[in-house]
Amino acid sequence: MDYQIARHNMVENQVRTNKVTDPLVIAAMEEVPRELFLPEGKRGIAYVDEDIPVGDGRFAMEPMVIARLMQSAQIAETDVALVIGAGFGYGSALISRVAETVVAVESNKEMSAAAEAAFQKVNYDNVIVVEGDLAAGYAKQAPYNVIIFDGAVSEVPAGILDQVAEGGRLLAVVREAGKVGVARLYERENGVIGHRDLFDANIPYLPGFEPAESFVF
């Protein structure tokens, strides 16, 4: 399989056709070899237009969605970014092609090791993989100019919102119970966090971020 041709076709047919016009985001999508950031058995479907299951209830986010989240984040080359739920590292790799530094938090030891190995293989040396609780973010390096969740959440934890810098942006696909998922942009201005909804996106939940079960009496 010619991955380079498949990658170019992904950009032309999935990314550009879905309102992604930022040249830095498009260049990152053209560069990063998605197949290297997947389990070996999934590499043949690396460029399909869907979320790819990678084990342990996790998914590699649909390329169009991560591209639109990145574009909405307006990442600058001086930004420090935090990725929640790095998985095998594809989203973190994309963001690293635009931001100055990326901190990628991952709770699964095998996935974090695989992501680190892939980053080394392609010489992406501005990504730091940290093993830890996804819901806690990584306050040690906070605040961040950009925070992106690599999977849907029922709500954004207050502790992670606290890690957004002044003028910073947080992007997450929020799927409240029984509702359609929506990409939401949170911004901190004058110390206050506000948010607005951007587009519909029904990607799978990050494990641990599903809606709490409600009891019916």
Rank of each mutant, 00 (worst) to 15 (best):
66 I>P: 12
75 I>M: 02
42 K>I: 02
156 V>Q: 07
65 V>A: 06
72 S>R: 04
124 Y>C: 01
99 A>M: 08
195 H>P: 00
5 I>K: 15
23 P>F: 03
165 A>W: 02
192 V>A: 09
40 E>C: 00
6 A>W: 14
161 L>S: 07
186 Y>A: 05
58 R>E: 08
75 I>H: 03
177 A>V: 04
196 R>A: 00
131 E>G: 11
82 L>G: 13
53 P>G: 02
57 G>K: 02
184 R>E: 14
191 G>A: 07
210 E>A: 07
137 G>E: 03
33 P>Y: 09
210 E>P: 08
135 A>F: 00
16 R>V: 14
78 T>D: 14
2 D>R: 03
14 Q>S: 05
73 A>R: 01
170 L>Q: 08
178 G>M: 10
67 A>S: 15
74 Q>A: 14
45 I>D: 10
131 E>R: 15
66 I>G: 08
93 A>D: 07
73 A>E: 05
43 R>G: 02
100 E>A: 14
180 V>D: 12
85 G>L: 13
61 M>P: 01
35 E>C: 10
83 V>F: 09
62 E>W: 01
38 L>D: 10
188 R>D: 08
12 E>S: 06
49 D>V: 11
31 E>F: 11
33 P>E: 11
150 D>K: 02
69 L>N: 04
60 A>C: 15
62 E>Y: 01
33 P>A: 08
158 A>T: 13
100 E>D: 14
159 G>I: 07
